[in-house]
Design a binder for these strands. Sequence first.
RNA 1: GCCCAGGUGGCGGAAUGGUAGACGCGCUGGCUUCAGGUGCCAGUGGCCGCAAGGCCGUGGAGGUUCGAGUCCUCUCCUGGGCACCA
Length: 861
Amino acid sequence: MRHSHGPGDQAAMDRYDAAKIEPKWQQAWDSAGCFAAKADPSRPKYYVLEMFPYPSGNLHIGHVRNYAMGDVVARYKLATGHAVLHPMGWDAFGLPAENAAIERGVHPGDWTYANIDAMKSQFARLGLTLDWSREFATCDPEYYGQQQSMFLDFLEKGLVYRKNAVVNWDPVDMTVLANEQVEDGKGWRSGATVERRELTQWFFRISDYAEDLLAALDRLDDWPEKVKSMQRNWIGKSRGLQFAFGLDGGPDGHDRIEVYTTRPDTLMGASFVGISPDHPLARALEADNADLAAFSAECRRMGTAEEELEKAEKRGFDSGLSVRHPFDTARTLPVYVANFILMDYGTGAIFGCPAHDARDLEFARKYDLPVVSVFEPSSGTHTAPEEGGAAYVPPKTEAVRYIRGFAGTEHQTGEAAIDAAIDFCEGNGVGLGVTKFRLRDWGLSRQRYWGCPIPVVHCDGCGVVAEKKENLPIELPRDVEFDRSGNPLDRHPTWRDVPCPSCGQPARRETDTMDTFVDSSWYYARFTSPGATTPTDPDESAYWMNVDQYIGGVEHAILHLLYSRFFARAMHICGHLPAKAIEPFDALFTQGMVTHEIYQTRDAQGRVVYHFPHEVTDKKLADGTPVGVIPSAKMSKSKRNVVDPVEIIDRFGADTARWFVLSDSPPERDVEWTDAGAEAAAKHLARVYRIALAARDAEQAGTGDADLRCETHKAIHDVTVGIESFGFNAAIARLYAFANTLSKSRAGRSAQIEAARTLAQLMSPMTPHLSEEIWQMLGGEGLIALAPWPRADPALLIEDEITMAVQVNGKRRDEITVARDLPKDQVETLALGSEAVRRSLDGKAPKKVIVVPGRIVNVVV
RNA sequence: GCCCAGGUGGCGGAAUGGUAGACGCGCUGGCUUCAGGUGCCAGUGGCCGCAAGGCCGUGGAGGUUCGAGUCCUCUCCUGGGCACCA
């Protein structure tokens, strides 16, 4: 039961009541339509975007932080006269919907759209400046139809192609599994041993752009270094030597093995050659070697996840073949099929140099192969690997002494030796220096229902035929069943049957759908013209692109952001984005998580039991059982350390939630959610409201009007700098300080009202509802959301008097207050005259006095 | 192993090479209130001291500087990312 109010909406509350004011102002913004993005040539444009959410049905507190940050930026840019685009949509395709269908019998579409409705109403309570008129979900046929149309454009430009690739195949569920669905080599649902199976799949030619995607990172000045370096590593550019070993006694057509090495300088230490089980030679040998076939089959049973390969023991199978060393043809090296060599990287074959590679050494010791050092430290001693030491792998930049080098000088760095070795080899007709990238092409085929259908048709006569654009969108059929294993599209009675777009004969529709990363690789562009009948509208994308500020979690540092960068390039090639948009995100900010303590007890069997925060008071359960407290960690349902934003908003209001998630930590770092902190935030907002009431009711005349004005302008300056530099926590700290100043001020009414209105404005990006309420109460014109941002008067920022610390030998002894522009020598005299300074000097004569104007005086003896 | 961030009060965290600990939480004391998620005032790094004041203090060890949390060298610890990548 809330207390009563004065009559009518215009009367101010006597107490801050979030539940009362928040819906009111949300409605006011809504009916003023102030957040609908409108192109306006008279203003600079600003596109702020937060990574759109997966519609799980529940907003979590991490979302609140993410969107609160974007909203601060959006509101600030709005107030500083920008035409702001701040859209929101849904990353709505993907596995959870299919899982829900399997587990609960709901249709993935119904489940998804119901979740979107639920989440949208949760969003509404946050009071964000979102332009909902541009909303779309990636599972809307209008959206994915345009995606299909772009797929066809990409196909025409050669940006998509088909090739065979290995997938995780669950033989019981008859389905392809994502890496995360494979646990210990078993399918997560069926428990069946997962096989590696080769399927023909669609790929984007992202690797053709590896060099460009790498080089362009250097120009992304407003991206975090961390993200750029993660992308650099992922792209993985390397320079090395590719050459062939002559093979003796191989099967027909196999008289050489191509290898790639980044360490050609270690060639004289080579003691074996390893090839991937998927290498053509291994496949040829398998045919009449049952043991090898069994070994390879076992290797293939491992998942395709790299971590999994990593954990596996390094094993090899001696093929019985051998190759000749290129520089010493009398020497032969055995050829092993090895489980740790990937067909996808380099040539699928390596030479092993056990002395200078830990993995090769492990392998050599296991199979009793020679270990031959090529170089040793330039100085000092070390235990050579041949004498039981570890593999010697110094940084490539370190100079070492080559004992079996064949190019360059005796003492040189690895880098120099590699270059010399490549030159030498090329000069002697042994191989070629080549640059390779770790980045592989992006496989987009998914053997699933709830994704964007790939718009091609398989015709017995014409092969793979692109669908006609006028037939788009190729919509997913609604009548599907999830009660059996496999892809529902595959066994749909009619959906697959279509005439060939080319010859008209009966043909089959492709039943694979697209990876959901495709959906999220261009949504930012679609927001510029969500209703267009082409993927984008040239005028709109020319006006709104690029995204000026993109905000999201660092977990998307690599894939989503790299794919989007590729996609923007591809869209440009097909005429869907202007050249300036090939790097679609001008500035990127990666925000930290919201964490929470974890509470646990143990049951009778000693198993850990987790407890919700609301069950715990003073580190005890209701029945008095003491609770173990584990330091803050990422919120997770299983750990029960989650806070529900809806509950928080019910209890404190959206402004409090927004204020708190921004206040306690720098935005790029994690913030710990604490109940005490949230309560403190709520109390502070209530206090700000009281301060505003007090300003309204202040005496007409008071003292310190000028001082309060100066303080107000200093606050404007500091808060503005804080917001512009993403120092939201610093801006909020400054707002606390300013509120304290105002509450203590004895200034007259008009000065106080001006200060309180400014306080409300400066807070409005974080606490928009409260700010509107105060603005209205204090007679502000129109909506605060549309009011121009206050400007600090530089003249008011300058202090007449300043306090300077006085040090003796670098230790603070006193402080003096002097006129701002007092000449140095007079400052010096004042400092030396200080009682405390004289005491510290203890009669000694100062050797030197350093005066830093406006800052400090240091007396040196 | 490699690459990034970070180590500052009881806690979250501030500090263009210039008064370390802003601001908040917590805590202590006082006042206030129809005790309605109270409000206000004061204090709060450690040690010594009644106080004035002094000494110590930003993971550790050195260094540069009139002056170092900040710069340099070495080192320890924590968090994150990457990796059978040839």
